[in-house]
Simulated assay, not measured.
Amino acid sequence: MRQPSLEEWYGQVARAIDQLNEDVQKMKNDQLVDKQIEAFIQLNEKLMGHATNYTNLIMVAGYAGFFAFWSTLAGKIPAWLFSTCGLLITISLTLFIGWELIKMFWSAKHMRRTQSILAQSRRQATVADYEKAFQEFNAQTQKVWMLFLIPSVITGVLAAVMLVGFFSRELVCAARICS
């Protein structure tokens, strides 16, 4: 086997160093992308948390306002309308509270799972296992949440629409009489 000349050896070393520099640069770029993705994931989680809190605030305020208004209507609107609206808004509220209770127990179970992951010996896969569990939990809760949110909103809005329709009809009838 022939020994490379000094110039050939320098060329091989230079190419190896160039390749190593390219590999290091690629690793730096990959690490930067990973950090950016992680930042986006954290931002998305915060936004989802704020959106959920805002939704809950709006729903609770809506229920409180509706029940306060609805309770003043006893004897002033037909009994069937009073009862139907009460039933619809109660179904809506029950679904909302049911979801919050399910979410509370589900979150506690998830927290126990992630705590057990974090309590394991420190290893490279610990972070990946935690992130996977967290992402699975978020994906599952989003799917199930819609199963509660949609009927809750539909029944609540239907109760409100019925009252608005009744009062609109009454207003039109009253306007015809006054004319």
Results as ranks from 00 to 15, higher is better:
G98F: 14
T94S: 14
Q42T: 03
Q124I: 08
I37D: 03
F40I: 09
Y63Q: 07
H110M: 09
L118K: 11
A74S: 10
A39P: 00
M104P: 00
A125H: 06
S71W: 04
K103Q: 11
V127K: 15
K109R: 14
L81T: 13
W99M: 11
G65L: 09
S83Q: 11
A125V: 11
I102P: 00
F96P: 01
V127S: 07
Q42F: 15
L101W: 02
I37M: 11
Q115G: 03
T84K: 08
A125K: 07
E45N: 13
Q36L: 08
L73T: 10
Y54Q: 02
T94A: 15
I117M: 06
M104C: 10
S107G: 09
W106A: 13
S83A: 13
L43Y: 15
N44K: 08
G49A: 04
T126L: 12
L43E: 05
T126W: 06
K76D: 06
W99T: 01
I91E: 00
R113F: 01
S121T: 13
E131L: 14
T84L: 13
S121G: 12
H50Y: 15
R112E: 15
Q124C: 01
H50S: 03
Y130K: 06
F96G: 02
A74M: 03
A125P: 00
L118C: 07
E131Q: 14
F67L: 08
P78Q: 14
Q124W: 15
T126N: 07
A61V: 09
G75P: 09
L95A: 07
N56F: 03
W70V: 00
D129M: 10
V60R: 05
C85I: 02
F69I: 06
T126I: 12
A125W: 06
V127C: 01
A61K: 03
E45K: 12
K109A: 15
G62K: 09
W70G: 00
I37L: 13
N53A: 09
K103D: 06
F40H: 09
Y63G: 07
T90K: 05
R122N: 11
Q120T: 12
T84Y: 04
L43V: 01
W99R: 07
V60H: 04
Y63D: 05
G65W: 01
T114R: 10
I37H: 02
I97V: 15
K46S: 10
I117C: 08
A128M: 06
F82Y: 14
I117F: 04
A51I: 05
Q124G: 01
S116F: 14
F67S: 00
Y130I: 07
Q124S: 06
T52Q: 07
P78N: 14
M104W: 05
L43P: 00
Y63R: 02
M104S: 12
L43N: 10
A74C: 09
A133Y: 13
I41W: 08
I89R: 02
L73H: 02
K109E: 09
L88R: 01
S71P: 09
W99D: 04
A74D: 10
